[in-house]
Design a protein around this nucleic acid. Structure first.
Length: 481
DNA sequence: AAAAAAT
């Protein structure tokens, strides 16, 4: 009953899906695709890992292919905006895959890399353009790009795109779009105030919601360890070493780590964690906005390939990034905007797999946990420190300290990042991580006490969540402080 | 208050 072939998508698109082994549309795809094929605007609210990208890509490609038009110089027919460069690249990759058998070109532009090549690629125009806001406007100012011919406008991670730092460029972009167009907004969370703001860019949208707002990804086991900030690093090192060990399946408290994603609150913090892990012999890479684009791409690429199994990130990686085999998410610090927690733990348990999320909670972070529990309607299970924690911690090596008094904010050359020495033959992965778990695979035992006991009541309970006033983000912070 | 995004 529910095959892509029954949704009325063009044959070349079905062939591309077949090549990828996709036959069943996900719930959001099933709901969104018919409305989008009709040309309706859409507000899509869906958990991460539910197939949002295909939900907008497939019907859009169908419509573009069905109504072929010659390319306009510096023009594009479909524009997709993303809040981070990595997510933009990922979306473009996916769209190229779906468009494989169509005569539609996909281009991707973002900052941090030379602009010339991008401008040249747009000279003759493209059908589909995926972009981050800054570089997009840059190219427009250079007259290398015009939005005059856009027929379909997609805003991914719409709530973040309408947040303070992004709203100004977004308004500029929106003003340059033709009034007559199809607009699609997607997000895993959609705070009320943001939804209001969105109305000015979108016209009588169909609302597609496949899960109650901000429910945490299903199948993620969620825990909290209460610990002093100063002891977090030692605990993380111990737990990663345990989980990465070859015999981890039998011994580690939370099973073997395939890949672990560690979130910190600051860029500096991410670097510091990587330094400690490296000193302890655990290969790790950091990704954040102060790294060069080359370093960012290398870090994410190595994590994808499995050459580096621990990635330490700021919230740059909290949204959208789709890496299979992320078995564990560690919140080294707790996000103070509760929605961000939902995005972070959504990096695990993707596409039908299981996942574990462990939050390290310092005393002053407890209020954030309360906000998160209120938002998600899930109580995090407390996880005690190992009994011999102090003893184990004492044995850990200290990272080499270059300058005694940290040269705060000094702009040291970013050179010493050179990665890739580690030549360990002891852990060879003959089986590639790329293999995706199948949707129909039995998940069995994992459900635990966190399962959603009653899908029916979730909605009502969510609605009872307290203040629906202006600035949901801000109010969460205030409650905490 | 932090992070992201243009140079």
């Amino acid at each position: 009953m529910s095959y892509f072939s029954e949704l009325g998508l063009a044959e070349p698109i079905l062939r591309a899906l077949e090549a990828k082994g996709y036959t069943d549309p996900s719930p959001i795809q099933r709901k969104a695709i018919p409305a989008l094929l009709e040309g309706r605007d859409l507000l899509g609210i869906a958990q991460t890992g539910t197939g949002k990208t295909a939900a907008f890509a497939l019907p859009s490609l169908h419509r573009l292919a069905h109504d072929p038009k010659p390319r306009n110089n510096a023009g594009c027919r479909m524009l997709v905006l993303s809040p981070t460069r990595e997510l933009a690249a990922q979306i473009a990759d996916n769209m190229r895959g779906y468009a494989k058998f169509l005569n539609l070109s996909v281009q991707c532009v973002f900052g941090g890399v030379p602009v010339g090549k991008q401008a040249r690629a747009l000279e003759r125009g493209t059908d589909i353009l995926v972009a981050t806001p800054g570089r997009l406007l840059d190219l427009i100012d250079q007259r290398a790009l015009t939005l005059r011919h856009v027929e379909i406008f997609v805003l991914d991670e719409a709530d973040q795109m309408m947040d303070l730092g992004f709203i100004v460029p977004l308004k500029r972009v929106a003003a340059l779009l033709p009034k007559s167009r199809q607009s699609l907004f997607f997000s895993a969370t959609m705070p009320q105030a943001i939804a209001e703001l969105g109305k000015q860019f979108i016209n009588n949208p169909v609302k597609v919601e496949v899960a109650p707002q901000a429910t945490t990804a299903e199948r993620v086991e969620q825990y909290a360890t209460f610990i002093n900030q100063a002891e977090k690093q030692a605990l993380l090192t111990i737990k990663l070493r345990e989980g990465l060990a070859p015999d981890a399946g039998d011994n580690a408290e939370h099973g073997a780590i395939d890949r672990a994603l560690v979130f910190t609150r600051t860029k500096h913090g991410a670097d510091r964690v990587v330094r400690h892990l490296t000193a302890a012999g655990i290969p790790a890479a950091a990704i954040h906005g102060n790294k060069s684009q080359g370093q960012r791409t290398a870090a994410l690429g190595g994590f994808r390939q499995g050459t580096v199994r621990v990635l330490v990130a700021t919230d740059i990686a909290a949204r959208g990034i789709d890496v299979s085999g992320v078995s564990h998410v560690y919140n080294f610090e707790i996000p103070n905007v509760p929605e961000q927690y939902v995005h972070r733990i959504g990096r695990t348990a993707r596409a039908g797999a299981d996942g574990i999320a462990i939050s390290y909670v310092a005393p002053d972070e407890k209020p954030y946990i309360r906000d998160i529990e209120r938002l998600t309607r899930i109580k995090l299970d407390a996880l005690a420190l190992p009994e011999d924690f102090q003893k184990q911690a004492a044995r850990l090596p200290a990272p080499s300290r270059k300058a005694p008094a940290q040269p705060q904010g000094s702009s040291k050359p970013r050179g010493q990042q050179a990665r890739g020495g580690q030549r360990s033959d002891e852990r060879r992965h003959d089986r590639p991580h790329g293999e995706r778990p199948r949707h129909d695979a039995p998940h069995g035992e994992r459900r635990g006490e966190h399962g959603s006991e009653d899908g029916g009541q979730r909605k009502r309970r969510f609605r009872s969540r307290a203040p629906k006033t202006v600035g949901a983000h801000k109010s969460a912070v205030r409650r905490a402080g």
